[in-house]
């Protein structure tokens, strides 16, 4: 293990750098400035952040999946994580509500704070955390229950509704906000698995917002959907931004450009560049970002 001491940015100074030798060889021919690991181009911080990630390192067994990532998530903003496959964007997303806890052999280091409180502290319970930071997965995964029960699941386990009327209200408003209510209002007792792919994904979004989260994480929410369903979900994301912070992982750069305000580019476990979406796509500062966006690899 080679330890690099030349790192000079303030965020990496106080942690030992665990850098495997491999990336230098692999990307050498593509990279000009790869000596300074964990050095992200652009401003990773925002004013008044909802979540802050500092020096996040993730290992799956021996594999160092993410290295020294620093990133803030702002209020009422859609942040897009882009990058080639296997670059660690989904891993980073899953760190934000500790979904990686369910994976054997996964080790997370560093600090991720929600409203100033480190969610990896020992006294933090993941149950309320995941209610505050909801997640929508790549493949729609409705439970084998009715549409109503799918949405009511979260409020039930968190005791958010005092009676049936309350619960009805939560379910209906969540379905309305996810834009699904008009399509399913007559068949709330039908199984959720019987809906179309796009409807299932909106059901999963309704399920996530039914527990009134503060942040919604979306892991390629449209990759299993057709263009029309994708457009509906993108409109929905724009609508949800008014109330929630949203982090979205996407493989589609057009989608990132359409829905997000800030974009972060990951490459082989490093966060290369962060900036306002318009700037990243029109005027990328890092050579790797430029190459990815212009379609030279990825």
């Amino acid at each position: 293990m080679e330890t690099i001491t030349t790192s000079s940015t303030s965020v990496t100074k106080d942690t030992p750098l665990m850098t495997p030798e491999k990336p230098n060889e692999v990307v050498e021919n593509k990279v000009i400035d790869r000596d300074h690991r964990g050095q992200t181009v652009g401003d990773v911080t925002v004013e008044n952040p909802r979540m802050t990630a500092r020096n996040v390192n993730v290992w799956y067994g021996d594999k160092h999946a993410i290295q020294n990532v620093n990133l803030d998530i702002a209020n009422n903003e859609v942040a897009a994580l882009i990058g080639p496959s296997g670059c660690g964007k989904t891993t980073f997303l899953r760190c934000l509500n500790r979904m990686n806890d369910t994976i054997d052999g996964c080790l997370v280091e560093g600090e991720i704070a929600l409203d100033g409180k480190n969610i990896y502290d020992k006294d933090v319970d993941v149950v309320p955390l995941r209610a505050r930071v909801g997640i929508v997965f790549q493949k729609p995964n409705p439970f084998p229950k009715s549409i109503y029960e799918n949405v009511a699941y979260g409020p039930r386990i968190h005791g958010l509704a005092r009676n049936k009327t309350d619960l009805d209200e939560i379910v209906h408003s969540s379905l309305k906000r996810s834009g699904l209510f008009d399509e399913v209002k007559d068949r709330l007792d039908q199984p959720g698995t019987g809906l179309s792919g796009g409807q299932q994904q909106r059901l999963c979004i309704a399920r996530a917002i039914a527990v009134s989260p503060e942040v919604i994480l979306m892991d390629e929410p449209c990759s299993a959907l057709d263009p029309i369903a994708t457009a509906t979900i993108e409109e929905l994301i724009d609508e949800l931004r008014k109330k929630y912070s949203i982090v979205i992982v996407t493989h589609s750069m057009q989608q990132a450009a359409r829905v997000s305000q800030r974009t972060a580019y990951f490459h082989l476990g490093d966060l290369i560049e962060v900036g306002p979406t318009s700037e990243i796509f029109t005027n990328p500062k890092h050579k790797l970002t430029e190459e990815y966006i212009t379609g030279r690899f990825g």
Binding site: N97, M99, T102, V126, V127, P128, L129, R130, A131, G134, I135, V136, F137, K139, N141, P142, F143, P144, Y153, G154, I157, H158, C204, R207, A208, V211
Partner: peptide, 15 residues
């Protein structure tokens, strides 16, 4: 039972 069912439930904060 697919792992996605478990993920979905954990993601909502279920124990």
């Amino acid at each position: 039972v697919p792992q996605s069912m478990r993920d979905g439930s954990y993601g909502l904060g279920a124990t």
